[in-house]
């Protein structure tokens, strides 16, 4: 699905990301963990062609993401609040996405039905602009927007941040359901080691812009991660 070759990004000569090779297969759910400044968001931004790589190339389905728009149709993403259009109401924002992705009215209805419990009556019909909602509710809108188009590739940066416990757990089960019911590829980063091991089949650890571990999730993974981040 995604192939990264010889990728480097540096700011003013200081390298922030350096990935010689990384392949993410179709249907895989890849978790990315790492401390602040490890390069998680930078990697996502590069995959979404939001920043210019200093060197190297990223392909999605074999086509370079840079200078190409086709991948956007099958990619749903939410990195941060800048993705939202904050002077719209949530409904208007979803309407806009429906128009942009060319979804039908029926698709939109299914979407609202699917996300009813996730929204927990706090998003729809509130007559509020996105900018006037709390951070957690904005986060919900962003995640829902990334998933509403039934994308083949989902990219979420720290989706659990700012969510209440109920919604965190709902998101975990939603991602698990998504994974088992379709061939969707998921890239997700998080500081929450438990949630990420619950969702992902493969986890990479970034440190100072480099991949230092690339492991398949098993029983002992959570313990291993905890020891890695807090060595005794």
């Amino acid at each position: 699905m995604i192939e990264i070759k010889d990728l480097k990004k540096s700011y003013a000569g200081t390298p922030v990301l350096d990935i010689p090779y990384l392949q993410i297969k179709k249907g895989e759910c890849l978790g990315i963990v790492g401390n602040n400044g490890a390069g998680k968001t930078t990697l996502f931004r590069l995959i979404l062609d939001l920043i210019r790589p200093t060197q190297g190339e990223i392909t999605s389905k074999g086509i370079p993401v840079k200078g190409n728009n086709d991948w956007k149709q099958y990619t749903g993403s939410y990195l941060d609040q800048h993705f939202l259009i904050d002077f719209l109401t949530p409904e208007e924002y979803f309407d806009f996405l429906q128009g942009i992705y060319g979804l039908s009215k029926g698709d939109l209805d299914t979407f609202y039905a699917d996300f009813e419990s996730f929204f927990n009556e706090e998003i729809v019909g509130k007559k509020k602009y996105v900018r006037d909602l709390s951070q957690g509710n904005r986060q919900k809108i962003g995640i829902a927007a990334a998933l509403m188009t039934k994308p083949e590739l989902v990219i979420l940066d720290e989706p659990y941040n700012g969510l209440d416990p109920t919604t965190q757990l709902r998101l975990v089960s939603m991602l698990n359901k998504l994974k088992s019911s379709s061939e969707v590829t998921i890239l997700v980063s998080s500081h929450d080691l438990r949630h990420i091991t619950e969702v992902c089949d493969r986890i990479i650890i970034l440190e100072k812009g480099k991949i230092i571990h690339d492991i398949l999730t098993e029983e002992s993974t959570l313990g291993d991660l905890e020891t890695y981040f807090n060595p005794v």
Binding site: L48, L50, I100
Partner: peptide
């Protein structure tokens, strides 16, 4: 405002 549009399938 462009950041809200870049990741969407818009020319």
């Amino acid at each position: 405002t462009i950041e809200s549009y870049l990741h969407l399938p818009i020319r």
